[in-house]
Design a protein around this nucleic acid. Sequence first.
DNA 1: AGCGCATCAATTGTCTGACATTTGATGCGA
DNA 2: TCGCATCAAATGTCAGACAATTGATGCGCT
Lengths: 241, 241
Amino acid sequence: MQINPQSRDDLSAQIAKAIKDAIIQGDLIVDARLPSEAELCAQFQVSRPTVREALKRLAAQSLIRTQRGATGGAFVNRLNFEDAYAQHITTSTLLLSMNAVSFETACEARYALERACAPLAAHRRKAEHLAIMRAEIRHQSEPDLSDEAFCTSDVTFHRALVDAAANPVLSYQLAGAVEAMQPLMNIITFSARDRAKIIALHIRIADAIAAGDGLAADAGLVQLEQETLYLAKTVFDARSA
Amino acid sequence: MQINPQSRDDLSAQIAKAIKDAIIQGDLIVDARLPSEAELCAQFQVSRPTVREALKRLAAQSLIRTQRGATGGAFVNRLNFEDAYAQHITTSTLLLSMNAVSFETACEARYALERACAPLAAHRRKAEHLAIMRAEIRHQSEPDLSDEAFCTSDVTFHRALVDAAANPVLSYQLAGAVEAMQPLMNIITFSARDRAKIIALHIRIADAIAAGDGLAADAGLVQLEQETLYLAKTVFDARSA
DNA sequence: AGCGCATCAATTGTCTGACATTTGATGCGA
DNA sequence: TCGCATCAAATGTCAGACAATTGATGCGCT
């Protein structure tokens, strides 16, 4: 965590990387206070704006937090699941929207991951998860729901299913896949009959989870994937015609 | 993408959020050029360092890239899988190391996700993936390999398995789970007999993938998970004694 | 002695102005 | 027409200053 030659990288990028590496290596532990901006200036032999740009880079990744005042400064932030979720979802969403990932590819990934949760969710689901799933199913049955609201409810339903697996690492990894799909899903317009089919599958999945039957839940997810793909295909065919 | 009241947030954070939202909403498309720093100063009524701090925040997330010179400026970056991988792995690694996630939880998530890939990998694996897996198995068999090198090779093997599923979204989501586990895995010291067991399972999995037998690969992964948990338990028990 | 309050000092947040550096565009001359 | 020097625009960096925040300090009063 020292030198900074006249390389092609920005000074602020180099400094940010040096501090980031120190955090990853464990040289700077959680809640440790970084040197003040003035001290960092002296240490790296750069001006204060440059140091500040470096610190802002780290703040953007939730690696540090800053606090003003007498005992203020920059502190190593405990990266919590909530912040990581938000970052992951943003990145995943942009990744999908910017790289022309096909609906099929995204859908396949999403359901493959979700099916991985099914057996765990069936074993460990709590009343609260089932309650959310049931509530969303009811919500989805409301006749004058917009397509977008239907998709949002769908995400909440699946999120509850994933959370029921009671593994925060799994929930974190899956958040990206499930939520990032929503913009793609929003393209689809649902007929009343489409919705009925989806809701029926949701009920089937929720029942299976409630009964602790992981295999049945898995089967439901397989059918739901096929149904989703079929609906998407219909929309895309209609659009190209 | 305008106003900036005197709220409690940093001005640079507000500006970064405004631009980020514009990118997510699609108001700024890939490779679009942002206004110059001077123009952004005028638009947001702030000074140049403040604008620059905001831009550095976005650069830290690979949302924009900057270029010097006459036709330079800040451009919306196409978020590629490679950059997203790196970010995701960093975040996942820190999330695990900072939140005292148990080995069991991380291991469960990792193998649950990996098993989701198994059937797809069995169908779609190319010669190159099999070649990597075979090569890593040979590498793991070298007697004077350090524990750390053994773990690195293990990651490469599993990465090839995941990539064999030929779904970039899946690979991206899984990269975090597999690579972030490595620091935890590095704690384990392997006896020669431990390695022999793991290598045997790797061979079994690779054979199953080569044969297109997703179920057999899945069974191999289940055993590998149990073996890994058993090894970790041994280490932890020995450490606490 | 104990409590309350004003002051202080340290630190980050922001601004102004300037200069350095990079790099494509321009225009002139051979 | 080609090649080169110059120019202009933009980012990168620096120096210095002031504002705002906030815990710590010390004084005075009870």
